[in-house]
Amino acid sequence: MPDTNAPRLDPGAPPITRIEITGLAKRFGKTVALDGLSLTLEPGVTGLLGPNGAGKTTLLRILATVLAADAGEVRYGGQLAAGPEALHEIRSELGYAPQEPGFYPNFTVFQFIDYLAILKEMTDRRSRQDEVRRVISLVGLDEVAGRPIRKLSGGMRRRTALAQALLGNPTLVVLDEPTAGLDPEQRLRFRELLSKRSPDQIVLLSTHQTEDVTALCQQVIVVDHGRTLFNGAPADLASTGAGRVWISDHAEPTAQLSWIDGLGRHRHVGEPPPGAEITEPTLEDGYLLLVGRHPDAEADGGPNGKAA
């Protein structure tokens, strides 16, 4: 996200310097999606890690002003998103790419992003289209810019959604599972893209995959059952597993979680028995200790029923 000559969406809007979320709650019928979630976001890339049903998408939607919370506050640089002026200012500095982006199927990539650029109030056609071309190049969709979206693969559609989120170089960029469905080369490209962001940009991206966090994020937040379980540096998350990760050649019923690593040995997290072969904890270990189950597992039945 280079900040070269790209226009800020609304030059009059005050830049958002940090995001403070306190006590966010949201339920859908009987399902509790967010249960008093709090966190702070600073400039840089923050990874939102959590299993299916943890509440990540709900959180991102509320942050992107697409959904209203039942209770709690989100302050954008001290300001609440209440009332049309505040909403307008905040949305002028916001870029959002949902997990399942919807498109007008007959629109081409260029047309769709241009349409969103109009909705971002870039009224001058020439400069707007220059900006559209810029973000299309950024995500590597030049070759298919003229193609209708319905003819594109899922990964390319995601990149289209990502491109529109980058229009105007917004201060706050909210991305829901941006790396899902990307092949390794595209991930690398995504990493490069993120590395070009301007220093005051706040990027929040959700992911299932701990490798994304290790590679991309200065800050990681772990959520589950609608609550924050960890908020800090990736290295600190890893070190929460210190002394609680061990390897053996057989199953260990006392382990909290076990799996077979790439070398065919059993890796366990939890309370190690005496004499166990303790090993260096990875970020994934720290995460699993917190969450207690594998990220791709279906949400278990918590006290409030299936979390959304």
Binding site: L9, D10, R61, A64, T65, V66, P84, H88, R91, S92, L94, G95, Y96, A97, P98, P101, G102, F103, Y104, P105, F112, Y115, L116, I118, L119, K120, E121, A161, Q164, V174
Partner: peptide
């Protein structure tokens, strides 16, 4: 409107 969610996050006054 399939693009409703994405459009909601934009600054164009929804009203």
């Amino acid at each position: 409107d399939p693009a409703f969610e994405i459009s909601r996050a934009t600054s164009y006054p929804s009203a």
